[in-house]
Write a protein that binds this DNA or RNA. Structure first.
Lengths: 193, 193
DNA sequence: ACAGCCATGTAACTCGTTACATGATTAC
DNA sequence: GTAATCATGTAACGAGTTACATGGCTGT
């Protein structure tokens, strides 16, 4: 049933389960505000590639219409698509999240550079975290009113709350790391060792 | 100075800053217990590919010797390698972590499957989290005694503590999501909507 | 004797990216 | 009129994976 579709394909399929018919362009936009936090923000070209594959497998239906002078194609999930998605969700082992955390990677080898570099990196990270937090918080707010059990945005809301807590935790960790860096003293030439 | 080296290359370079000369095989092992949590556990073949590239760029020195009947090659970071690593750490913008979180992705579209599937997934995730936590805790313990400011494992310890807190937070989030799923009632056929 | 670990690599392949290309519609 | 946004693709490429291949050394 569900063969040869990469996870991003299922992610796109998932975006199409919220009711609307979407163009590739719109899927990219939705991905940028949702998937981006937990999976990836796929490139436009990747979205189109994936949509073609899904169409070939019969998991989505392409609905091409002429809108003014240009061809616009919307995509809707098919019955087979919903079945494939369900199969995937039931039949795939949880799989541990993969974290590509450049900040932690660079903190790990912090001894290979000056403390100031590491501090600057952590400060930058705090800024970016705050931006991400604000973006996600806006998304979360937009879901209010339809986030109770049985309502359409229940699961997206749960995920958004999870993500907001995650960002909050990351902020705490980065602050703690900064504080720990200061333990040596702002200029680290006396108390070391 | 630092051109054309993928992040995993710098990660390997970083592993070589802790003093030892390592074989490709040993690097893979170290990566599996450290990098795996914050970056990736590269495939063996990838480790060798990267080592060849680093050698070509003069960032590591390959030290081949005959050990019994077989050729064993150890790698050590060079001065140029340390400079390249420092350049990379100073000159690269922080870059937001990329999270490929299949569990969150599937929770996001939880409405597309039965509640039991989602519960099972979260239960599995809790198990895996506990295993990962135990693995990382063991690593953390091994660093004790050399984790103060100025000591060699200060930064690895900071990162391990960060990671342990992260796993703890994930555990809380998964439990909260499970609790929230139960809000509808263990069998969800009455109070929904 | 045989399994499991140590050690090194090649080949084929896939996901996903960046760069490039095109053109229509909308907002200022 | 012109910039931004909507919309769709192709081509080249790179990082990283799995599968395959080889062989010595070590413990039981």
């Amino acid at each position: 049933m569900s063969q040869d579709i990469p996870v991003t394909g299922y992610a796109i399929l998932g975006l199409l389960t919220f009711g609307d018919e979407l163009t590739g362009y719109e899927i990219k936009q939705r991905a940028d505000i949702t998937l981006r936090f937990y999976w990836v923000a796929p490139a436009m070209s990747q979205v189109y590639t994936e949509l073609r594959r899904l169409t070939e497998h019969g998991l989505v239906r392409a609905d091409a219409r002429a809108e003014g002078g240009r061809e616009v194609t919307s995509y809707a999930i098919t019955g087979a698509g919903q079945a494939a998605l369900r199969d995937w969700m039931e039949g795939t082992p949880a799989g541990f999240p993969v974290l590509k955390h450049t900040v932690l990677l660079r903190l790990l080898i912090g001894h290979a550079t000056e403390p100031g570099t590491t501090r600057r990196m952590l400060d930058d990270y705090l800024d970016e975290l705050d931006r991400a937090r604000a973006d996600l918080a806006a998304v979360r707010e937009a879901l209010r009113g339809a986030d109770r059990p049985g309502e359409p945005f229940r699961f997206p809301s749960m995920v958004a709350d999870w993500g907001l807590d995650y960002f909050a935790a990351e902020t705490r960790h980065a602050r703690r790391a900064l504080a720990s860096l200061d333990e040596t003293g702002p200029r680290d030439d006396d108390a070391a060792d």
